[in-house]
């Protein structure tokens, strides 16, 4: 029943466009660049989440401090709040009226209507997915392994890279996939910060409102297919080798 609920609308949408519609759509330069922009911006957001989220995830997994629950709730906030609100919040920060927006503009960083703006918004929504998955991975590594490594002469960073990372990298890749997947699906926040350059969900929305369902469906189908192949590849790479043995 659950599977039917998930798969039926998707199957309906995928089966609607004809092969000719799909071929014409992918031949369209605007569609190709929108999908490419979606993928690259989402990958960038996942990469930023990986770089900044890994130390945060490790800190949350390994230490107890006053206000930890508050910090964890704050990290989960982007999951809960309506996405247009995220867009509005980032927009208000990046405007000339705000000191931070003024500062960014002074150093040549423009968020409104740029790739930088899209990546900022996507990182905002993707970060909790990476942090929570990586944190679960770090928590699964017994502290004792790290303690023994330290007693054998390995410093903190050597212990992290020789013990913790090899035992957590699958969680990290899963977190990367989850955060990238979340970023690709984002529409509400992006449409406020950067309608142009157009990412795939915004293009779908535009085609739907301007031309109707028939013109937006093939774009959606291509995005789903490309994402499916991409995530399948990442899952295969991150699955344990020789598990059956």
């Amino acid at each position: 029943m659950v599977l039917l609920f998930i798969l039926l609308p998707l199957f309906e949408m995928v089966s609607q466009p004809s092969w000719n519609d799909l071929r014409e759509t992918i031949a369209d330069e605007e569609v190709r660049s929108a999908i490419f922009l979606s993928l690259t911006c989402s990958a960038s957001a996942a990469a930023i989440s990986f770089i900044f989220g890994t130390p945060m995830a490790y800190l949350l997994a390994r230490t107890d401090f006053t206000g930890k629950k508050v910090v964890e709730s704050m990290i989960d906030l982007p999951i809960m709040i309506p996405h247009p609100v995220i867009g509005i919040a980032i927009l208000s920060l990046s405007g000339r009226n705000h000191w931070l927006g003024q500062f960014f503009q002074d150093i040549g960083i423009q968020l409104l209507g740029t790739k930088t703006g899209i990546i900022t918004v996507l990182t905002f929504v993707a970060l909790p997915f990476y942090i929570n998955t990586a944190k679960a991975g770090f928590q699964a590594v017994p502290c004792r392994l790290e303690q023994v490594a330290r007693s054998l002469g390995a410093g903190q960073s050597a212990t992290f890279f020789r013990i913790t990372v090899p035992l957590t990298w699958r969680h990290m890749i899963t977190g990367f996939i989850m955060s990238m997947a979340r970023a690709i699906s984002e529409f509400g926040a992006v449409v406020i910060v950067a309608y142009h350059p157009m990412i795939a969900p915004v293009l779908m929305y535009e085609r739907f409102t301007a031309y109707g369902l028939k013109y937006s469906q093939p774009v959606a189908v291509w995005l789903i297919l490309i994402c499916l192949v991409l995530f399948l590849l990442l899952r295969v790479v991150s699955s344990p080798i020789g598990k059956k043995n």
Partner: peptide
């Protein structure tokens, strides 16, 4: 002094071997 600079070996009941 940090653990890595003490020249002290430790063996736990559960061995804590590195599984990878």
């Amino acid at each position: 002094v940090a653990p890595e600079n003490r020249q002290v070996g430790i063996v736990y009941q559960d061995q804590a071997l590195f599984p990878h």
